[in-house]
């Protein structure tokens, strides 16, 4: 029974990680699904969020102010990507890579090195969520509760936002650029706004991650986009109902992130060498991203060829 108990002991940790990465994945959903672009800024902006939060905590700033500043710093990084893309005409993938690289330097400057450790003795009273993740520790349940509250508030706010005229114009920009311009939407503005909002949320997740891990580390964002995409894709797969509304979709993105970390912890638990974990994540995302294409290519002949667009 000991292995089972040990495995169960990893669950609260997986849940905490899943909820934090679920918030990051909600940010990624805004660019990947709503705006229909892959934004690689997030590998940098999640660290920026963590770094800003840890730096301010180390300067005795209130945790809520620190989190807010992390969010704003993330928005600014998204703004940079947005301007590189819309003002300079750089393809959005490349714009994201460029900002990611700029953020690497910015993050080193903020961290004043490669790491700011948040000692759990010194900062225990200051942070919202704990670095502890053992099932015996009551703090982990408080942490999970706080993270759930974050998810609920963020999803509610986004549900409201994407129901407003402005939010609607973001959705239409991602869906049909030509039509959006013809309907008077400044698509450059909506793209920049979407990128800023997305990276703000990702950085907010980064600030939570720094508290949960007890440190902000220059390397903590490596592959963040892949983890986020995995959560989005798994969430979409689990949310079978095609007509599900926006809030439900976002809830499933968070569930997707939790599933991702459960699988991750389980695979580690089963003894997979940790060197292979990132490769595994990337392969899983590649398979999910490629599946619709392969399905279309190899199973299209079985179906009747579709008629013209008219009817």
């Amino acid at each position: 029974m000991t292995p089972l108990l040990n495995w169960l002991g990893t669950l609260p940790g997986a849940l905490t990680q899943g909820l934090i990465w679920g918030i990051a994945a909600i940010g990624i959903y805004i660019t990947f699904k709503v705006l229909d672009v892959a934004d690689l800024t997030v590998d940098g902006s999640i660290v920026t969020g963590a770094a800003v939060c840890a730096f301010l905590l180390s300067k005795d700033v209130n945790i809520w102010v620190a989190i807010l500043c992390a969010f704003i710093a993330g928005m600014l990084s998204g703004l940079v990507t947005g301007f590189l893309h819309t003002l300079l005409g750089i393809p959005v993938i490349l714009a994201g890579i460029l900002s990611q690289l700029m953020l690497w330097s910015a993050n080193l400057l903020i961290l004043g090195g490669s790491i700011i450790a948040l000692s759990r003795f010194k900062y225990a009273d200051k942070v919202l969520i704990t670095a502890e993740s053992s099932a015996q520790n009551i703090n982990v349940y408080i942490t999970i509760g706080i993270l759930l509250a974050f998810c609920v508030v963020i999803i509610a706010l986004l549900y409201w936002f994407f129901g407003t005229e402005l939010g609607m114009s973001l959705r239409s920009t991602g869906n049909n650029l030509e039509m959006s311009r013809a309907q008077g939407i400044n698509t450059d503005f909506t793209k920049v706004l979407g990128l800023a909002l997305s990276n703000g949320i990702v950085a907010l997740a980064g600030s939570l991650l720094a508290q949960q891990q007890g440190a902000a580390n220059i390397n903590m964002g490596r592959g963040a986009i892949v983890i986020g995409l995995a959560a989005v894709i798994v969430g979409e797969a689990l949310c079978a109902k095609a007509t599900a509304n926006f809030a439900v979709r976002l809830i499933f993105v968070v569930i997707g992130a939790i599933v991702y970390w459960l699988v991750y912890q389980t695979v580690i638990f089963l003894g997979l060498p940790s060197e292979l974990l990132k490769m595994l994540s990337a392969l899983v995302v590649a398979i999910f991203l490629g599946a619709p294409y392969l399905k279309k290519k190899y199973f299209a002949n079985n179906k009747k060829k579709g008629g013209a667009v008219n009817a």
């Binding site: 936002f161 407003t164 005229e165 402005l166 609607m168 114009s169 959705r171 239409s172 869906n175 049909n176 039509m179 959006s180 309907q183 008077g184 939407i185």
Partner: peptide, 22 residues
């Protein structure tokens, strides 16, 4: 916009010519 509802499409057209706010 194919992925948006009929009423959402109409509301986008309905906002044409004025500032899209909250």
């Amino acid at each position: 916009a194919s992925d948006l509802w009929v009423e959402e499409n109409m509301s986008i057209a309905d906002s044409r010519g004025h500032r899209r706010g909250l």
